[in-house]
Simulated scan of single mutants.
Amino acid sequence: MDYKFRCDCPFTSAIDILGDKWMLVIVKQMLVDGKETFKDFIESDEAIATNILSIKLKLLEELEIVTKSKLPNNKKTNIYRLTPKGLELTPILVELAFWSDNNLREVHPDLAKGDGIDLLRQDKKAFASALISSYQEKMDITKD
């Protein structure tokens, strides 16, 4: 795929790829919610359209942020997993969650609460490490 970047700025180039409405949401769904299959993504609360999901998953795969393989017991179902490059997005997601917790509660009082948010508030690095460890443990269990 031929990528179109607006300029040579690293920040802007990252936004060109990751700054659309769905890219980081899909990564978050995998990392935090354990989504792995097309059906998992479609059934999520974020309600992404199937055509958009297909395009975004393909782009994430081309960028080597996710891999696609077949489920061992169902060769018709694709399974998507974060690569090390995908896991490197964890601190970005943590910073977005931290900002949201600090700045959006007044306008969105239903934002998540609980132990996870408490850890996020106390120690962002520990929160990010816990997300990555949990994801990696899950992937070791479900590996082909």
Rank of each mutant, 00 (worst) to 15 (best):
Lys4Thr: 14
Trp99Ala: 12
Asn51Cys: 04
Ser129Gln: 13
Ala126Thr: 05
Glu61Ala: 08
Glu43Asn: 15
Pro10Arg: 12
Ile132Gly: 03
Lys138Trp: 13
Glu46Arg: 02
Leu18Asp: 05
Leu131Phe: 10
Ala49Phe: 03
Cys9Phe: 07
Ala112Gly: 05
Phe41Tyr: 05
Leu120Gln: 03
Ser54Met: 09
Lys39Pro: 00
His108Gly: 00
Glu88Ser: 11
Leu18Arg: 13
Asn73Phe: 08
Ile79Asp: 02
Lys143Asp: 05
Glu137Gly: 11
Lys124Asp: 06
Ile17Gly: 04
Lys28Leu: 08
Ala97Met: 09
Leu57Phe: 08
Glu36Leu: 09
His108Gln: 11
Met1His: 14
Glu61Phe: 08
Lys4Glu: 15
Ala97Trp: 02
Gln136Tyr: 05
Ala130Val: 10
Leu104Ser: 09
Ile132Phe: 04
Ala47Thr: 01
Asn73His: 14
Ser134Tyr: 07
Val94Phe: 08
Thr77Tyr: 10
Glu88Cys: 07
Asn102Asp: 12
Ile65Asp: 04
Ser133Tyr: 08
Asp115Trp: 13
Leu71Thr: 02
His108Asn: 11
Asp118Glu: 14
Tyr3His: 14
Glu95Gly: 02
Leu82Pro: 00
Trp22Phe: 04
Val107Arg: 06
Ile117Lys: 01
Asp110Ser: 07
Val66Glu: 02
Tyr3Ile: 12
Cys7Pro: 03
Lys138Phe: 15
Arg6Cys: 02
Phe41Arg: 01
Leu63His: 07
Pro10Cys: 07
Met1Tyr: 10
Lys70Trp: 02
Asp140Gly: 01
Asn103Pro: 03
Glu62Asp: 14
Ile65Asn: 03
Val32Gln: 12
Pro109Gly: 02
Ile92Lys: 04
Ile92Asn: 04
Leu53Arg: 01
Ala112Ser: 13
Thr67Trp: 04
Ser129Met: 10
Pro10Val: 09
Pro109Asp: 00
Leu131Tyr: 06
Pro91Ser: 05
Asp123Asn: 15
Ser134Lys: 10
Leu119Ala: 04
Asp20Gln: 05
Cys9Arg: 11
Leu60Asn: 03
Ala112Gln: 15
Leu89Tyr: 09
Thr50Arg: 09
Ile17Pro: 00
Asn51Ile: 01
Leu63Ile: 08
Ser44Phe: 00
Gln29Pro: 01
Leu59Glu: 13
Pro109Leu: 03
Lys70Tyr: 04
